[in-house]
C-alpha cells in the first residue's frame, strides 16, 4: 500500500504544508498589523469559490483571482483617505455576503459551502496535496527571496526608499503570497480558520524570539505542531479537524504568553 493512500497521512501532510507556508507570512501579518487584512481577504475567498463554480473554472484559480482583486482594491482605497479598518470591514462582510448570495443562484450545482468555511482536511486528495505543497513552495520561496527587503519595508517605508527598495512592490509580494496561501489552504482549514493559522503561531513565537528570523522559524514549528497535534486529537476525540488545529495553536499561544510574562518579570 502506498503511503499516500492513507487519508490520515495525506491530511497530516496537507496540514503541515499550510502551517509551514502560513507561519512566516503570518509574522509579517503580525508585524505590519494586518491581522484583519488576512481575515478580510479570506472572507472574500468565498466569492471566489462561487465565481469559480459559476464559470466552471478551478476553485483555486477563482479564489486566487478574487483575493488578489480584493487586496488590491483595499490597498488602493486606503491611499484615498478611507481608514483601513473601515474598508476591511466593508469588504470582508460584503464579499462574504455576495459570495453566499451568488452561490444560491447556482441551482444546478450542489456544493457543501461549509466545507469552504471550515475546511475538510480529511477529504484531501493527492492532487490537493500537490497543490498545497506547490503553493507552500511558492510562498516560502517568495518570502525567502525578498526577506531583507520585506523586513526593511516593514520597519519603515522611507528607510526602504532610501535603500533603493520600492515599498509598494514589497507590499504586492506580501499580498500575492497571502492570496496563494488562502487559495491553497481554503480546502484544508477553510476561510474562517486561515487567518488564525496565520496569526496565532506567529503571536505564540513572539515571547521567545530575539530576531525576526528566529520568530519565523519558531512560528513554523508551532504551526507544524498545531497541525499535527490537532489532527491527532481530532482523530482521537472525534472532533472537527480544522477547529481542533486552531485550538491547539491557541493553547500554544496561551502557554507562550504565560511563560513569556513569567520570564520577563524574573
Amino acid at each position: 500500500m502506498n503511503l499516500f493512500d492513507s487519508f490520515l497521512v495525506r491530511a497530516a501532510l496537507a496540514g503541515l504544508g499550510v502551517a509551514l507556508a502560513a507561519a512566516p507570512l503570518g509574522c509579517f501579518v503580525v508585524w505590519r498589523r494586518m491581522a484583519y487584512f488576512g481575515d478580510a481577504t479570506a472572507h472574500a475567498a468565498i466569492l471566489g469559490v462561487a465565481l469559480a463554480l459559476a464559470l466552471n473554472i478551478s476553485i483555486m484559480v477563482g479564489v486566487l483571482a478574487v483575493v488578489l482583486v480584493a487586496a488590491t482594491i483595499v490597498s488602493g482605497l486606503t491611499t484615498r483617505g478611507y481608514a483601513m479598518d473601515t474598508l476591511l470591514g466593508v469588504m470582508a462582510h460584503s464579499a462574504l455576503a455576495i459570495g453566499l448570495v451568488a452561490v444560491s443562484f447556482l441551482t444546478n450545482v450542489r456544493i457543501d459551502l461549509m466545507a469552504y468555511l471550515f475546511g475538510d482536511i480529511l477529504a484531501v486528495g493527492k492532487v490537493d496535496l500537490a497543490v498545497i505543497w506547490g503553493g507552500a513552495a511558492i510562498v516560502l520561496g517568495l518570502i525567502g527571496w525578498r526577506w531583507s527587503a520585506l523586513l526593511t519595508t516593514t520597519l519603515n517605508a522611507e528607510l526602504a526608499h532610501a535603500s533603493g527598495i520600492d515599498p509598494r512592490r514589497e507590499q504586492l509580494i506580501l499580498t500575492i503570497a497571502l492570496a496563494v496561501v488562502i487559495a491553497v489552504a481554503i480546502k484544508v482549514v477553510g476561510v474562517l480558520l486561515i487567518a488564525s493559522l496565520l496569526v496565532i503561531p506567529a503571536a505564540a513565537a513572539r515571547p521567545f524570539s530575539s530576531t525576526p528570523e528566529r520568530m519565523a522559524a519558531l512560528a513554523m514549528g508551532i504551526g507544524a505542531l498545531s497541525a499535527l497535534g490537532g489532527l491527532y486529537l481530532a482523530f482521537q476525540f472525534d472532533t472537527p479537524t480544522g477547529p481542533t488545529i486552531v485550538c491547539v495553536a491557541a493553547t500554544c499561544f496561551t502557554f507562550a504568553s504565560i511563560v513569556g510574562a513569567v520570564t520577563s518579570k524574573a
Binding site: 508585524w31 498589523r33 520597519l155 519603515n156 522611507e158 532610501a162 513572539r206 525576526p212
Partner: peptide, 28 residues
C-alpha cells in the same frame, strides 16, 4: 551614496530585532 535618518521610526513591539540585526538591513 545616501545615508538617511528618518524623522521618526516606530518599531512595532511584536517585531523582535536587535540593534546589530537592524544595522544589517537590507544589506548584511
Amino acid at each position: 551614496r545616501i545615508g538617511y535618518v528618518p524623522q521618526k521610526l516606530h518599531i512595532d513591539p511584536t517585531l523582535p530585532i536587535t540593534v546589530a540585526r537592524f544595522l544589517s538591513l537590507p544589506k548584511s
